[in-house]
């Protein structure tokens, strides 16, 4: 029994998203075991042991897990999680990639992207781009769940003193190989963790004009996001897309610049605490969710904003 939480990490520290998952695990109730899988991930396992509320850490340190290949990680998690009451991971691209595989290996259903825990078997999750919230009850003996991080506060990264055990299980399915990656480098905060997010849409016209947003963002310690239209047009890379099929964010302040407010975009940001919209079209749907709307040409408004903050 107990809850198994799959940790995301960079070998040295545990990523913020996992701290939100721990809070979801606490709401469910039961002993929390954190699984850290990677290659050379010992320091991350030590960090996981300090998270408040964690009773045990399993460290699967093996070359097979270096790039988090879904085939290998799913086989590991299915074995480590067998008999657990719940297996939880963040609904990041990592969790979304391997968790359904875990569920299928255990022959149970998966509950995707929960935003609230009603009880140990009942959860709330958004469907239809967040236009409806379903309360679902699952009767599988092991519940496989991905957690939308914006639905839960982060657990304290310090204060715990769990034991760390090595998990000597090498699962190399041999059917997939890592070829390479191109990771966006940025000194700005991560989109999903930032307190302030400034996003640009098609109205930005090109990638160079995003510099205006970066300048304001750097003054405010904000992350910069984008609409799908801005990503599709090649203004900015895919990892900046906010929305139903991109990243879900819920910062204290979200500023939408030159974004019309399509359902799919709103699905990714409408749980933000304060929403600001800057758009030259006063009929734009984004104004229906904005706390503060400014009808203006962004090419006038953004430089002025830059000078006033």
């Amino acid at each position: 029994m107990g809850i198994l939480v799959y940790a995301e990490h960079d070998n040295n520290s545990i990523k913020g998203a996992t701290l939100n998952v721990i809070t979801a695990a606490k709401a469910i109730g039961g002993d929390i075991t954190v699984l850290v899988a990677g290659s050379g991930c010992g320091a991350a396992a030590e960090a996981a042991a300090k998270i408040d509320g964690v009773s045990k850490v399993l460290c699967a340190d093996n070359a097979a897990y270096e790039h988090q290949l879904a085939e290998n990680v799913a086989a590991l998690v299915a074995e480590a999680g067998k008999g657990s009451s719940h297996i939880l991971a963040a609904a990041t691209t990592t969790g979304k990639n391997f968790m359904p595989r875990v569920a299928a290996l255990l022959d149970v259903e998966q509950i995707s992207e929960i935003v609230a825990v009603e009880s140990a078997d009942t959860f709330k999750r958004p469907i239809y781009a967040g236009n409806a919230i379903a309360t679902v009850q699952n009767s599988d003996s092991t519940k496989v769940i991905t957690v939308r991080t914006t639905g839960f506060d982060a657990a304290a990264a310090e204060g715990g003193s769990a034991s760390v055990e090595a998990l000597d299980v090498a699962k190399d399915e041999g059917k997939s190989a890592f070829v390479g990656e191109e990771l966006a480098k940025s000194d700005r905060p991560e989109l999903t963790a930032a307190k302030i997010v400034i996003s640009g849409g098609r109205g930005m016209q090109n990638g160079d004009n995003f510099e205006m947003l970066y300048k304001v963002a750097d003054k405010l310690g904000a992350a910069v996001g984008a609409s799908r239209a801005a990503v599709d047009a090649g203004f900015v890379p895919n990892d900046m897309q906010v929305g139903q099929t991109g990243k879900i964010v819920a910062p204290d302040l979200y500023v939408a610049v030159g974004i019309s407010g399509a359902i799919q975009h709103l699905a990714g940001m409408k749980d933000s605490k304060v929403i600001v919209a800057i758009n030259k079209d006063e009929e734009a749907p984004i104004f229906q969710v904005a706390d503060y709307g400014l009808v203006a040409d962004l090419f006038d408004a953004v430089p002025e904003l830059d000078s006033l903050v």
Partner: peptide, 26 residues
């Protein structure tokens, strides 16, 4: 094994205001 107990609309955001200038917004 998953039963939908109920489906509800999401919390609606209350309507905000329009500001007249960037200075007022800040």
């Amino acid at each position: 094994s998953t039963k939908t107990l109920k489906v509800e609309p999401p919390a609606e955001r209350s309507a905000g205001i329009k500001v007249a200038s960037v200075a007022e917004l800040v």
